[in-house]
Simulated scan of single mutants.
Amino acid sequence: MKAILTALFFIIFTQLSSAQGNTDTASSKKISKAEQELLDLSKLKWQWMSDKNVDKLGHFFHEKSVFVHMGGSWGKEQEVNVIKSGGIWYKKADIQEASVNIIGNTAIVLNKITLLAVVGGNEVTNPFMVTEVYVKEGDEWKLGSLSFTKLLTP
């Protein structure tokens, strides 16, 4: 009986050690030029939002884009107006993880971030998983959807 328990322990320990060694498959995967372009574009978007650069954002957001926040959802025009007026000021997005999946002319970028923002005059910090959906029109990627999911743990 002792030999069986020892063997089971060894098998479980070996499996756990093996699984822990492969927890970060996204970072070990070689990314393509298009994937890197999207990750760079996503990062640039956060900077434009921080800078309140509504001219670049207005061009970058698809005409039919949608934005999902903790307090509601709306389209391109309202998002640009919210940024321009300072209703939401995306001061700093600290990106902990980022990944991209391209499916034809659509790309999905996931960003795990800690967002420092000013909302309604109050400075807040929240951990989010942000889903960004991009569509390729001609040679340009346009942001079609930006959705914030608040994480329970930072």
Rank of each mutant, 00 (worst) to 15 (best):
residue 111 N to L: 12
residue 107 A to S: 00
residue 66 V to A: 06
residue 88 I to F: 09
residue 53 N to V: 09
residue 148 F to I: 06
residue 30 K to L: 10
residue 17 S to A: 15
residue 118 V to I: 14
residue 133 V to H: 03
residue 149 T to D: 08
residue 121 G to F: 06
residue 136 K to M: 03
residue 23 T to A: 13
residue 81 N to L: 05
residue 65 S to W: 00
residue 64 K to S: 02
residue 116 L to M: 07
residue 117 A to K: 04
residue 141 W to G: 00
residue 25 T to P: 01
residue 14 T to G: 14
residue 53 N to D: 12
residue 107 A to G: 07
residue 97 E to R: 04
residue 94 D to C: 04
residue 41 L to F: 09
residue 88 I to W: 07
residue 52 K to T: 12
residue 107 A to K: 00
residue 100 V to D: 00
residue 113 I to E: 02
residue 29 K to I: 10
residue 15 Q to Y: 15
residue 104 G to Q: 03
residue 31 I to E: 02
residue 146 L to Y: 05
residue 78 Q to Y: 14
residue 122 N to G: 12
residue 54 V to G: 01
residue 7 A to D: 14
residue 30 K to S: 13
residue 58 G to A: 02
residue 42 S to A: 15
residue 29 K to F: 05
residue 75 G to Y: 00
residue 94 D to E: 09
residue 5 L to R: 13
residue 41 L to N: 04
residue 28 S to A: 06
residue 1 M to E: 09
residue 134 Y to M: 09
residue 56 K to R: 09
residue 93 A to R: 00
residue 25 T to N: 12
residue 152 L to R: 12
residue 77 E to S: 14
residue 82 V to Y: 05
residue 99 S to W: 04
residue 109 V to M: 07
residue 80 V to Q: 03
residue 28 S to Y: 04
residue 72 G to Y: 07
residue 100 V to P: 00
residue 47 Q to P: 06
residue 133 V to R: 03
residue 41 L to A: 11
residue 28 S to T: 12
residue 153 T to F: 08
residue 49 M to G: 01
residue 109 V to N: 01
residue 126 N to G: 12
residue 40 D to Q: 12
residue 87 G to T: 01
residue 34 A to L: 05
residue 33 K to G: 14
residue 56 K to H: 03
residue 78 Q to P: 03
residue 112 K to D: 04
residue 88 I to G: 08
residue 149 T to R: 07
residue 142 K to Y: 00
residue 143 L to E: 00
residue 56 K to Q: 08
residue 141 W to P: 00
residue 27 S to E: 08
residue 131 T to Q: 09
residue 50 S to F: 04
residue 144 G to D: 01
residue 17 S to P: 06
residue 121 G to L: 05
residue 65 S to I: 00
residue 82 V to N: 13
residue 138 G to F: 02
residue 113 I to W: 01
residue 148 F to G: 04
